[in-house]
């Protein structure tokens, strides 16, 4: 139960708690898992890595499980497809199911009918479209909430999908390291570009939010210098950006980087991606009922 003094509603910014406290933690996990699953599928499809596609499918299953844990009436989950016209949760649920369906078909074809290249490409593209949709819809679900100004930004979907792609590429890197793939160098180059893009998008998002409204500015201040600062600076900045970028620079110059160093980058990026979802969700604040004076 959220404890607030009645007077707080009138003059203070109210942090949203429904999507971060208690069961709300599971929706943050679901958004994170959906993002990296989509990113991992896209990366794995590009590199034609069946194990990566399979793990993306498993992560999507975990996303669904996390969603179910978030719901108070999970047995009614099937009702969540009835409002795709207006609800992003409903759209997302549809994307997840279609992604799962096309991914299963793709995996079956890749494993047991490798010569059916046209069919494999067709289903891979279809699954790729819904992998992207699954990854980006979580951002739209958040940015659609006009009541929370720091969320109500067109940059949020881009931020979430880039973060998901970054995490997905990192997991594929771990898979390729395990497989001893010859394409690691190519993948590392892509990761460098995505990491730089991710860092820029985070900066632009925060900078833009400070100009959008006082509530969004308050949220940014809480993120970078307030109670959420440890989560942002350690979780998002250190693990999500700084450590992977440093390792990425090292691997650029030292071509035979150790597996331990690469795995450190992978784990760091995954932690950073999770921290980003929690940071954005926790930063959401509502306007007070009355302007404070």
């Amino acid at each position: 139960m959220i404890q607030r003094k009645p007077y707080d509603f009138m003059v203070k910014y109210q942090q949203q708690k429904d999507w971060v406290d208690g069961r709300g933690n599971f929706i943050a996990f679901a958004f994170f898992l959906g993002g990296i699953a989509g990113g991992l599928f896209l990366a794995s499809a590009y590199f034609d890595n069946l194990l990566g596609i399979f793990i993306a499918f498993l992560l999507t299953g975990l996303m669904g499980a996390s969603y179910m844990l978030h719901l108070t009436h999970p047995m009614r989950f099937w009702r969540m497809v009835v409002k795709p016209g207006t609800s992003w949760i409903s759209r997302g649920f549809t994307f997840i199911m279609l992604f799962g369906l096309f991914t299963v078909i793709t995996m079956i074809l890749m494993q047991w009918a490798p010569d059916a290249t046209t069919a494999i490409t067709t289903f891979k593209v279809l699954a790729g479209i819904f992998a992207f949709a699954q990854s980006i819809y979580t951002g739209f679900a958040v940015s659609y909430v006009s009541a929370i100004k720091v969320w109500n930004s067109a940059i949020v979907p881009i931020l979430f999908v880039t973060c998901g792609l970054s995490g997905g590429l990192a997991i594929l890197l771990a898979i390729m390291v395990g497989q001893g793939s010859a394409q690691i160098a190519t993948l590392e180059n892509i990761i460098r570009v995505v990491l730089i893009a991710f860092a820029i998008i985070v900066a632009v998002y925060l900078w833009n939010a400070t100009y959008s409204s006082t509530a969004a500015k308050d949220a940014v201040i809480r993120l970078i210098g307030g109670v959420l600062a440890p989560l942002f600076w350690i979780g998002v900045f250190l693990f999500g950006i700084a450590i992977p970028v440093v390792i990425s620079v090292i691997t650029y110059w030292v071509h035979d980087a150790s597996s331990a160093l690469l795995i450190t980058a992978v784990v760091s990026e995954i932690i950073g991606g999770l921290a980003l979802r929690f940071a954005v969700l926790k930063a959401g604040v509502y306007e007070p009922l009355l302007p404070s004076d």
């Binding site: 139960m1 509603f9 109210q14 949203q16 429904d18 999507w19 709300g24 929706i27 978030h70 719901l71 108070t72 009436h73 999970p74 009614r76 989950f77 009702r79 969540m80 609800s87 949760i89 679900a141 659609y144 909430v145 006009s146 009541a147 929370i148 959401g284 509502y286 306007e287």
Partner: peptide, 22 residues
């Protein structure tokens, strides 16, 4: 009978007028 308890409506209400009966 139709609510699944996803709390999206609670998050989206700018007036914070909704509550979850837990």
């Amino acid at each position: 009978d139709k609510c699944v308890g996803c709390r999206y409506c609670m998050v989206a209400c700018p007036y914070q007028a909704r509550q979850m009966y837990e």
